[in-house]
Amino acid sequence: MDAKLIALATLLNVAPAIAQDTGHATGHAQHLGAEVMPFDLARIVHIFTPLKDGGTQDVVSRDGDPTQVTLIRAHLNKEAAAFAQGDYSDPSAIHGQAMPGLAELRAGDGRMHVAFEQLPGGARLRFKASDPALVAALHDWSEAQVRDHGADAVMHHP
Rank of each mutant, 00 (worst) to 15 (best):
I72R: 00
N13E: 15
Q97W: 00
A98Y: 10
V36W: 01
P50G: 11
A42P: 04
F39Q: 05
K4S: 15
A81Y: 00
M99H: 10
H31T: 15
R147L: 14
G96A: 05
I47Q: 09
V14A: 09
V69S: 04
V36P: 01
G33K: 02
H156W: 14
N13W: 14
A153K: 08
L105Y: 05
A133Y: 06
A34N: 08
A42H: 11
G27A: 08
M99W: 07
G54L: 12
A133H: 14
A133W: 01
A25K: 05
A29D: 07
H75I: 01
M112K: 01
H157D: 06
A115N: 07
L102A: 13
L12S: 00
M1S: 11
D40K: 13
A103R: 03
A133Q: 15
A93G: 08
G27Y: 02
T67G: 07
F48R: 15
R147I: 14
E143A: 15
K128S: 10
P66F: 05
L51D: 15
D63A: 13
E79K: 03
A107L: 02
A17H: 11
Q85R: 15
E117H: 08
A98S: 13
H95R: 08
T10Y: 12
L119F: 00
S130N: 03
V69W: 02
H24A: 09
H95A: 09
N77I: 00
H28F: 14
I6L: 15
R106G: 05
I18D: 11
L71Q: 07
L105Q: 08
E79S: 07
Q118L: 04
H149Q: 11
A15P: 00
A144C: 11
R106H: 05
L71S: 03
L51P: 05
M155F: 07
I47H: 04
L102Q: 10
V60M: 08
R126N: 12
E104M: 07
H113Y: 04
P66T: 04
T10Q: 13
G64D: 08
Q20P: 02
A19H: 10
L125I: 10
A34T: 08
L76C: 10
F39C: 07
E143H: 13
E117G: 11
D90V: 03
A153M: 10
H28G: 11
A15Y: 01
K78H: 11
G33W: 00
V36R: 06
F48G: 15
A25Y: 04
G86R: 07
F48Q: 15
T67H: 12
P100M: 04
D58Y: 09
M37R: 05
L12F: 01
L51W: 10
E104Y: 02
T70W: 03
I72D: 03
D53L: 03
T49I: 06
G150N: 10
D131A: 07
G86H: 09
T22A: 13
A144Y: 08
V146T: 15
